[in-house]
Amino acid sequence: MANTGTPLVEMRDISIAFGGIKAVDHVSIDLHPGEVVGLLGHNGAGKSTLIKCLSGAYKADAGEIYINGAKVDINNPRDAREYNIETIYQTLALADNLNAASNLFLGREIVGAGGFLDDSAMEAETRKIMARLNPNFRKFNVPVSALSGGQRQSVAIARAVYFNAKILIMDEPTAALGPQETQMVAELIQELKKQGLGIFLIEHDIHAVMDLCDRAVVMKNGHRVGTVNVNEVTDEDILGMIIMGKKPPQAV
């Protein structure tokens, strides 16, 4: 893919430390519209930490973030949402005791006259978007704790899609899912990509990365090992980068 235009997201020289341990050490990554960039590395390599600086969960100690070429300040999740950045967390950031509609609209509720919640409108909207994403979804009036992993994931994805995300961060979106549900998420990613979204995909499964991503960024011990175009490398090349931190010649 020719990534010549202005990147959708550019994170430059990001560093963040926790109690003296450098979780992310001068890492730069970028993302273009309609592109899926995989982030790989061992547990503790710093990929989730890096991406949380973009989603507003953490604030980087140093470094800059550019959205469409303009420098931005992201101090909290609300700021991230202003820039149409939506995150789907590994831990499925849903409030278990609330139903699908309440979760989908959490923090951005539809209010009617007098500032009161319009639950019926929210449920109707939720029914519409779920009909598109997961037509088999029926459990609109039970707490999401009663849903399966795939159903919960579709609520989390619906949340991102409904609010017109331009930049989507997915932290192991299929970790808790069965094969069929994984397939559903994969198809959804292709669909969103076609619509011109940029997607950061944090993933452990190399096959998923080879299938879904355009480029892959490998991290180790808080450093960036390298970035590769997925169609120019083999599984072994990427494994070598993850395990030994060995940079293949095609990488940049």
Binding site: S55, P77, R78, A93, A95, N97, L98, S102, L106
Partner: peptide, 17 residues
């Protein structure tokens, strides 16, 4: 709604802004 959300999952509530 936020009271319930915080009780159900404080982290999710914070991440939802």
């Amino acid at each position: 709604r936020y009271v319930f959300a915080i009780g159900g999952n404080p982290e999710a509530a914070a991440l939802s802004g």
